[in-house]
């Protein structure tokens, strides 16, 4: 597959994926652009692989998880946790949209690697093995990252329904 063909085919999906893990479309754009420029310079090698998309996705993930991006990611998290505080009180609890927005806000404040694992599982439908490959860690680590993320989300979910229960 040529580089141009790859970009035409996968750019939207890469942007969606990057936006989902970074929770910031501009940061995601920056990451994807950087990664694609790097990928292009070594496309003869990447293009010959069995799964170029998986490899580029790994590059995107590594870039996001790298320490260079730590500061940007932290700023996004702070901003989102501010938002998260307001979402439940402003919205009608019965509203599916509000439910979803509340969940979005909770996902946005998870640790970066946990969120990446979560997105790979629930958005990209990856297996443990594929997630391990993308994150560059052991499958056992993938499982523990996912279970920790789910635990946090569930705890929030319970707390939320409890609060709503009291009010209704």
């Amino acid at each position: 597959m040529g580089f141009d063909e790859f970009v035409a085919d996968r750019l939207d999906r890469l942007l969606r994926y990057a936006t989902a893990i970074a929770c910031d479309k501009h940061l995601a754009q920056d990451i994807v652009q950087n990664v694609l420029m790097r990928a292009q310079s070594k496309w003869d090698r990447i293009g010959a692989m069995d799964a170029p998309y998986l490899y580029v996705k790994r590059m995107v993930t590594n870039d996001y998880l790298s320490w260079r991006r730590r500061k940007a990611a932290r700023e996004v998290a702070v901003e989102r946790s501010e938002l998260a505080r307001h979402v439940p009180s402003m919205a009608d609890p019965a509203d599916a949209h509000a439910e979803r927005e509340a969940m979005r806000a909770r996902i946005a404040v998870l640790p970066r690697k946990q969120r990446a694992a979560l997105v790979l599982r629930f958005y990209e439908d990856c297996s443990d093995a594929e997630i391990a490959q993308v994150l560059g860690c052991a499958e056992s680590t993938v499982r523990s990252q996912l279970s920790r993320a789910l635990q946090t989300l569930r705890a929030h979910e319970l707390a939320r329904s409890a609060t709503l229960g009291v009010h209704s």
Binding site: L11, L36, E101, M103, R104, L150
Partner: peptide, 24 residues
């Protein structure tokens, strides 16, 4: 809860910038 997570992530992903900008 898993469905809610899927929906939330998909909503986040939908926020992406226009691919044409990146292409340009």
């Amino acid at each position: 809860m898993n469905d809610l997570i899927r929906q939330a992530i998909a909503a986040e992903a939908d926020e992406r910038v226009d691919p044409r900008t990146v292409m340009a």
